[in-house]
Design a binder for these strands. Structure first.
Lengths: 188, 188
DNA sequence: ACCTGAACACCGTTCAAGT
DNA sequence: ACCTGAACACCGTTCAAGT
């Protein structure tokens, strides 16, 4: 006796499952029609479950956001605040690059309270802010750097990596270049 | 006795003129249909003159590219290589942000030899490389920084400014943050 | 030669009709 | 309640028909 609620749940799950594949293939601007088609679901059904593209992206990102916030919490407990921040920034930059177009969506949505994706981005920005504050308290990072600036810069690293797929260690290198500036060198 | 050639020329000019307005309004992803409509020209005429979106963008950017390369030439003659590079990076970052979406188009097209926009980007990348080399020769910038890395980073500054229109001095600030890392501080 | 706009194959989004 | 897919208003791109 599978009720309508069960079918609705299964539909939702299938949409999400298919969306992971299609968005991985086509990026965040993937065709919603295509997702509905490949999930063998009416287009209206997709819209019922996910009233906007950002709502779908938010669901796709939830796992990763949860994982990243957990990582951030663990890193906050680290003794070496500078190393913790560096590790975090690198992991976040990889996470922000999960899908083509994602860095743009994340940065754009940060300023847009109304977007469902905003709920996914905020904890990441907040985690960045906490780790930054700790590193600043340890005098490891210039004190005038704001969390929004750092967040934008590390998101941009993901954006560059996406636009320039020639090398894949771009992220480490670019982040190191930026940090060498942002990190206050020990007195010498 | 205005011949067909004259009309073709006038059509082309009107398309470019209208495209400047529409692309300024809607960004590099502006509707080509809309441009043709507002230029009071058949859609096929637009395609005849500009077989691809990048071909149109290249025409829109030509003036600015010429102006920027002239600036770069002048700056190369400056004594203070570090100051010249900084000035260049800031001016380029503003130029790259002429239209919404342009930083993305520019960085993407750098690796795509086939794009008509490539011809517009290459002189800018080359100018960046020359000014970088001069600054490196003066020991003002870390020697292991490549022109492509610097080009990507400064383009990313334009990208961030576009995604985060809250502040408008973003460019100066972000560039300073990055340079403070890239610029080797005087021995102290 | 050059121009036009219909034609084709796609979108995102809404919503009346079905179960 | 939930699902479907036609309907609407858009795209980019091509190309037969016109001058």
């Amino acid at each position: 006796m599978t009720g309508a609620r069960d079918e609705a749940r299964r539909n939702r799950e299938r949409i999400v499952e298919v969306a992971r594949v299609v968005v991985r293939e086509q990026g965040t601007q993937a065709s919603l029609r295509d997702i509905a088609r490949r999930a063998e679901v009416g287009l209206g059904t997709l819209y019922r479950h996910f009233p906007s593209r950002d709502a779908l992206l938010e669901t796709l990102m939830r796992r990763r956001v949860d994982h990243l916030t957990a990582r951030a919490a663990a890193l906050t407990a680290e003794k070496d605040a500078a190393a913790a921040l560096t590790t975090w920034l690198l992991e976040f930059s990889y996470g922000a690059g999960t899908y083509r177009g994602l860095p743009e969506s994340l940065l754009a949505t940060l300023a847009d309270q109304t977007s469902p994706l905003h709920a996914a981005v905020e904890p990441l920005r907040d985690a960045t802010a906490r780790l930054l504050a700790a590193a600043q308290a340890a005098n490891a990072i210039r004190a005038d750097l704001t969390a929004d600036e750092l967040f934008a810069l590390v998101t941009a690293v993901g954006w560059i990596a996406e636009q320039t797929p020639t090398l894949d260690n771009h992220r480490e290198r670019l982040l190191a270049l930026i940090l060498d500036g942002l990190t206050r060198p020990p007195r010498r």
